[in-house]
Design a protein around this nucleic acid. Structure first.
Lengths: 230, 230
DNA sequence: TCCATATTTCGATGAACATCGTATTATCTA
DNA sequence: TAGATAATACGATGTTCATCGAAATATGGA
């Protein structure tokens, strides 16, 4: 058993500082233009273009052309998950400032993972949904039970609509700060979008950090029975 | 959240083909001489020496000197676990030959992870031990219950002796083919050694593959209630 | 003491590759 | 149609780094 060529190809791409910065920027799951990414990585547009074409060749990102602009995004959830692994493999903390430390704590608590919720709260919510019998774990997927259908509809999440999407409906996504699974896939995204609609959570502009609003504290308590202390 | 410098340092080390080969060779948890590793990686001793000193600097391997020889080993279980991640991140299968395919299956079924058992059988055994109340999961550790103490003693594993070792007693080790935890640490190793003593499993010379003997099939059935089909 | 073996040190070489300047293509706007 | 902006293409440059030859160091055995 050796390290798979595909993986070394991936790590080679990741090891380069500029590319790592670009990929980290794309971890929000949104589209970004080439220039924007060049600016973020502090390199000239040509260089960014060079890197982006490499990333595209290796199916790490996809590109959509709109007029003069090229919008880049992570290719899929699988890529985001893999990057999440690399970003969070446990390593000596090496916290410099208090600010950094508290930001890390907030990220561990609640953050986005591609297009759904991750971190402690996401793992807790997933556990609650399992315990209450709304979902069941089957291999690497979660299955929505009859009881669950009622719960999600009550919450305002359109299960039927979501299940029609081509992407995996509700796969178990490994959470790297918590080292267990949380809910990903279309259902994970559906819930995430709904939490925002309900004003339970708020996303920060240039960060993967998620803030739980006062409204959210009440909502999560009412619907999930989850007490949020901080 | 960006990719941690420590991680890029690690991936940089891993990306290089010769070093990856050396590390893969060391995944058996045993000591190997510098020349031996040079030969395995098809490079001259000087080059291997160069790589090994880099790996040592980065605390991935440790070195013990005996006479003219320098014996290298992975620094610790943590390193082995991290490597295990890289080796098994799911990637397009790309199986070339039947031989390769069946070897992969055997590895998924039973292999060593550093110095304990991993793969499907290890996960199954861990689940059984949990279900029977021999161990309990607490965070990233497994705790041996009173019932468990009796079970392990009955099996011939010296719990008291093992718990005196300085290494972590029984941590939950992420299994990358199964995507769940199995039992690692001193207890994981203790069981592994005991299975070999009992003749239940056999390790192959230059592979991480583990073979379950006929004696083992009977033993695992008797003590764990585990049916091994193949 | 002398030679063989294991390993490291040093220096040279060559290949891989990120970066950017210049130029080109594509698209939008006035 | 002309100028501005977004992005890519190409070529030159410089740096990093794996590799190996040559030589040095350390140890074991005869």
């Amino acid at each position: 058993m050796s390290i798979h060529p595909n993986i070394t190809a991936l790590t080679a791409l990741l090891t380069e500082k500029s590319r790592a910065t670009i990929l980290a920027a794309l971890m929000d799951g949104k589209f970004h233009t080439a220039s924007e990414l060049a600016y973020m990585a502090s390199i000239k547009p040509q260089t960014a273009s060079f890197h982006l074409s490499k990333l595209e060749e290796n199916s790490l990102v996809i590109c959509e052309k709109h007029g003069r602009f090229r919008y880049f995004r992570l290719a899929n959830e699988e890529v985001a998950n893999t990057l999440e692994v690399f970003m969070s493999i446990s390593s000596p903390p090496e916290i410099r400032s208090l600010k950094q430390s508290s930001q890390l704590k907030r990220l561990e608590n609640a953050r986005t993972c591609y297009d759904h919720l991750a971190g402690r709260i996401s793992v807790k919510l997933t556990t609650i949904m399992l315990d209450n019998g709304y979902i069941e774990k089957s291999n690497k997927q979660f299955i929505v039970t009859v009881k669950g259908e009622e719960f999600f509809n009550n919450l305002g999440v359109d299960i039927v609509g979501l299940s029609k999407k081509r992407r995996s409906f509700s796969h178990a996504c490994l959470d790297w700060s918590e080292r267990t699974h949380h809910l990903g896939g279309a259902l994970g995204n559906g819930l995430f979008v709904r939490y925002i609609e309900l004003g339970w959570i708020e996303a920060r502009a240039n960060s993967r950090e998620i803030i739980i609003t006062d409204k959210g504290k009440i909502g999560f308590k009412e619907y999930f029975g989850l007490e949020i202390s901080i």
